[in-house]
Computed example of a mutant assay.
Amino acid sequence: MVDRPNKPMALATTPGLPPQAQVNITHNNSRVSAVLPTGESVEVLLYGATLISWKDRAGSERLWLSEGAKLDGSKAVRGGIPLVFPVFGTAPEHKAAGNLPQHGFARTSKWEFLGKSTSESQGKNESSVKLDFGLSAATIDDETKKLWPYNFSLIYSVSLTPTTLSPASRSPTMDIAQVSVTGLDEAEYIDKVDGAKAKKQSGTVSITGETDRVYTPAKGPSEPVVVSEGGRTVYSVVRDNLEDVVVWNPWTDKAQGMADFEPKDGYKNMICIEAGAVKGWQKLEKGDTFEGAQTISV
């Protein structure tokens, strides 16, 4: 079990109190869903603590999820919001992480649901909900322990309000040709499609082919990274203690080569914006903690 102080308990409905978020565990205890009184909702797969759905009050989906995504725990989910730990990509030269699979093991491990907490904004009559999930050295499987024989404990929180989601985003769009990303001007980045060359962004980012870049925004995590479509803001992403931003779209050939990427022309309707600590390692002394977050506003 993940040791967490003040672990939230399920909240019962009390007559006379304002409506609160409803949280349910479904699909044979493999998913956790939450619905706000105003109708917004999220759904988290305990396999990988992967957020597979974020809907607005009208029921419209805000996350891209491949139609071929495996939701049965057989492999990492294609789409939604994955959680990457302890390595982004692979690190074959790194002594501790050299044998780990692509993007580590957090996205392919079974997480615990630790509970929920809810609140209501003063004077706004708006509810919010926070779902907490845990993974530790005691709960990973034996094969993973062989690959990562270190003591660790992770707490992952997903918070939902009527207008924001924390922490992350893969953004659905209607037409990738109309999409632009701002907030990355003057940012240094690594272009993984062009031999991992170091480059510098000039102006807005548009997607015209396979894109796989690791940006370090020049103005820091608090500067919003904004995804727009046809000049209309779709999402605004603000990070906390996460210096890097990955921008990814597989385009035609890569999409064709991914068995779980469906439909094959789905690259026209998605862009991946991922916040993280990607370019370098975070060094922690014994007993230290690292905390990072991001908030997506619509």
Rank of each mutant, 00 (worst) to 15 (best):
G68W: 06
A96R: 03
G39C: 07
A34P: 10
A96V: 14
W54S: 00
F88S: 03
N29G: 13
E112I: 01
A58R: 10
K130F: 11
L131A: 01
G59S: 00
R31I: 06
N29A: 08
K70A: 09
N28K: 11
S41N: 11
V35A: 05
T118G: 03
D132T: 11
N99Y: 09
A34D: 14
S30M: 15
V87Y: 03
G123R: 10
K110G: 03
G68L: 08
L114A: 02
S117W: 01
K70M: 14
F113Y: 10
D72W: 04
H27F: 10
F113I: 02
G98Y: 10
L71G: 15
L100V: 01
H103V: 01
K110N: 15
I52F: 00
W111G: 02
L65H: 08
L100F: 12
V84N: 02
A34M: 11
L114V: 07
E93V: 02
K95S: 13
T26W: 08
H94K: 03
L131K: 09
A76K: 13
V77A: 08
G79E: 08
D72F: 05
T38R: 03
S74Y: 08
K116N: 04
G104M: 06
G123K: 11
K55R: 13
N29V: 00
N29M: 07
V42A: 09
E43L: 13
W54P: 03
T50P: 13
I52K: 00
A106H: 08
N24Y: 11
V42I: 08
L100T: 05
V129D: 03
F88L: 12
I25R: 14
Q20G: 13
A21V: 11
H94P: 11
D132I: 05
G48H: 00
S74F: 14
V32C: 06
S41R: 14
S127A: 12
S121R: 04
G123W: 12
L65D: 04
P37T: 15
V35D: 04
S128H: 04
R78F: 12
I52R: 04
L36Q: 07
A91I: 02
G115D: 07
P19V: 04
S41Y: 08
S30A: 15
P19T: 02
K110A: 06
G59P: 12
G59H: 09
A76H: 06
G68I: 14
R62I: 04
H27I: 14
K75H: 11
S60M: 13
R31G: 00
L131R: 13
T118W: 01
T38N: 04
S109M: 14
V129M: 06
F105G: 02
Y47H: 13
R62D: 10
G80F: 00
G98H: 06
L46N: 11
A97C: 14
A69G: 05
D132V: 00
G68N: 07
I25M: 06
G39P: 01
Q102L: 15
P101K: 11
E112H: 09
T38M: 01
L36M: 06
T90I: 09
P37C: 12
T108D: 15
G79D: 00
F85Q: 08
E40I: 00
S41A: 15
G89H: 09
A69W: 07
Q122R: 10
K95D: 09
K116G: 02
T90F: 05
F88A: 10
V35I: 09
E112Q: 14
D72C: 01
T118Y: 01
S121L: 10
S66I: 00
I25F: 07
R78M: 12
P82D: 12
P86L: 05
